[in-house]
Design a protein around this nucleic acid. Structure first.
Lengths: 219, 219
DNA sequence: AGCTGTGAAGTATTTCACAGCT
DNA sequence: AGCTGTGAAATACTTCACAGCT
């Protein structure tokens, strides 16, 4: 059986492969801005520090986008990857934000979300000082409205920027309101059902892993 | 030959294992704050969504920290992991920050770095408006001083929070000034020599990968 | 001549399953 | 009875190497 475009069986694509597709897309957007029309897996690999074989293999999960002897059309491959991921021009994925402390506020003002196909459409907090405030055209809602508001909405992706102590209950509420993917900035790994995805972003964990390697160098 | 404690051969510990050690440490700190004295690999696994076998295997790369029939002492395992990583109480790893835009400023004020053994000791920017300003007790330096200042320092870890267009040259400068590990917030994957480590943190890439899975749910 | 797409081979990582200690 | 530590088995991921197209 054929696997073709993004309408075939998708369940068997490894998660690591999905994780690299946005990296390829970002590189292609860069090449496009430099008016480069075609790129080989070798060139792309040099740019990203990824082997050409891996790039070809990754892309082959979704289709045959290249031309032998020529490589890939930057424009064509970009739109193919966008299609695969669901990040298509003209579509903005609605996202909810929970936690409007200094990090949450910074995320609200982060211009790349809009540029890359996402829009924060709801923001929640527990702090009475924050509730009702309007930031970037968005009114901060009390968190007890989360379930009702998101339940009535199309939001399936949320960003969590609350203290560690509240992360689990916030994620639980998001999941029961229909959220399927969570970008979690809280320094705590929340437990979720198998069909929900969490990406944890904790700079401290990254730094702590780095010290292991830096320490070695010193010895 | 024996591998024992953290003074044996370390080069053969898989990177994925190193990456999980800070996660274990964070969980142990939490358990300790709840006055829990002992924990089994099964309990820890439930807490983190990691299989008990994986936890035991991971820890076994560094030593034998558990007691059969009993599990691990929270206090003892915490300090063992701290020792392995080089994240020990009383030691603060000096870190350089490049880029003091809104993200860089937020990082300067982020309290968890200090709490977890890191201190931003130098900050650089290109913007003449920022240079000379004092933020959180730190004077922003012009980037042309980077090489000299870091070359004379013990700094081996840096955080990059500059626009994508400048990320590569900033990373190049950091590497030539002796930095071995980079936490990169720029939406660009910089190329580095094999002996330098980069952790990329780009929320947009995480979100774009999420849309793939969310999209499936909608079909 | 140059490059893709892909089975097959090679590595890396995870999980199993159980001997052995408390 | 309960749990660790660990070889061995299983699975996942990456790289090789080459047929086949342009």
């Amino acid at each position: 059986m054929q696997r073709f475009g993004n309408n075939g069986i998708e369940g068997d694509v490894p998660d690591v492969v999905i994780g690299r597709m946005p990296i390829y897309l970002r590189a292609l957007v860069l090449l496009n801005s430099q008016d480069i029309k075609d790129v080989s897996s070798h060139q792309l690999g040099d740019l990203l520090g990824i082997t050409p074989a891996q790039i070809r293999k990754d892309l082959s999960y979704f289709g045959r986008f290249g031309k032998q002897g020529k490589g890939y059309s930057v424009a064509h491959l970009s739109s193919a990857i966008r299609e695969v991921l669901g990040v298509v021009p003209g579509v903005q994925w609605p996202v909810a934000l929970v936690g409007v402390g200094s990090l949450g506020l910074a995320l609200l003002g982060y211009p790349n979300f809009g540029r890359e196909g996402f829009r924060i459409v709801e923001a929640f907090d527990v702090d009475p000082q924050q509730i009702g405030r309007t930031v970037s055209g968005l009114t901060i809602r009390p968190i007890h409205e989360l379930n009702r508001v998101l339940g009535e909405s199309q939001v399936r992706i949320a960003i969590v920027a609350v203290p560690a102590s509240q992360a689990q209950q916030v994620v639980d509420q998001l999941v029961s309101a229909g959220v399927r993917s969570v970008l979690n900035y809280a320094p705590y790994s929340p437990r979720v059902p198998d069909d929900v995805r969490v990406s944890n972003i904790d700079p401290v964990l990254s730094l702590q892993a780095m010290t292991y390697f830096v320490k070695e160098d010193l010895v």
